[in-house]
Design a protein around this nucleic acid. Structure first.
Lengths: 131, 131
DNA sequence: TGCTACATGAAAACCACTATCATGGGCGCA
DNA sequence: TGCGCCCATGATAGTGGTTTTCATGTAGCA
């Protein structure tokens, strides 16, 4: 079975913050925000917790242009992709059955197995475009 | 006009190595390989040269799962995507007009501008699957 | 309540990458 | 061909994100 995860206030704090953040954020930003709110939590624990949540599929991870990992809790637990604002990190969840299918076909045609894929769209959201 | 690039043996060495490598490789791997071949070249220069080549569109860059930048010389200069073996780095070039169009539509629908997108498929190639 | 194993977090290590700056060598020009 | 300017090089140090280490704290069970 899945390894038991102990319920600690640090873990709760990270999880709760993720619940209310609509944008992709880096581990460092999350840590900073938690400290600002007075949570006593170490950077190490933030990294570890995010890692755990990501492993368990509870948060989505992707890499910003600079190569740093950014995290967000997503509405749907199912496989989906993102339309991300490169200014503010705001993200829409989108799904693309046609793309999934296309990926599968391509893989098969070239003899690739154990397929995964990344499909992310980056742009500037309406609000940031206006600003 | 485009900035003149001076022809040096280091630059030639990197470019030539890329010509014969069919796989995506990290800057460090490329540096290591060049040293192994007896080329006198510094890591800094490898990074710089790859950066230049990438800026000029002469090589494709993408990020491996670990977040590090990997480089490869591609056949086609046009926009395309990759089917990459996560074991050996071997890559096929693929294009997907339907996906391009889909990305554009999604962006427009959500009011996003200045769109870019990443679409990469990772898997295990035929050779590595067999092994 | 007491024990024990797992979670925490400060500090240090790690790793990819970039900036610095003194030296070397392309390339334009005479 | 030789001169000289200026960009390219590369060793070293720095940066920034992430992971490891390890002593201490604490959740959760008996």
């Amino acid at each position: 079975m899945t390894k038991a995860v102990r319920a600690t206030k640090q873990r709760a704090a990270v999880s709760e913050l993720l619940d209310r953040l609509p944008d992709f954020r880096s581990a460092q930003e999350i840590h900073e925000e938690l400290r600002r709110r007075g949570e006593g939590i170490g950077l190490t624990t933030v990294y570890r917790t995010l890692q755990n949540l990501a492993d368990g599929g509870e948060v989505d991870v992707l890499r910003s242009a600079g190569g740093e990992a950014v995290y967000r809790r997503c509405e749907s637990a199912e496989h989906h992709h993102h339309l991300v604002c490169r200014r503010c990190g705001a993200a829409e969840e989108i799904d693309a059955p046609a793309v999934e299918q296309w990926a599968g076909e391509m893989a098969e045609r070239h003899g690739f197995t154990e397929i995964t894929h990344t499909v992310e769209i980056f742009g500037v959201c309406r609000a940031c475009t206006a600003a």
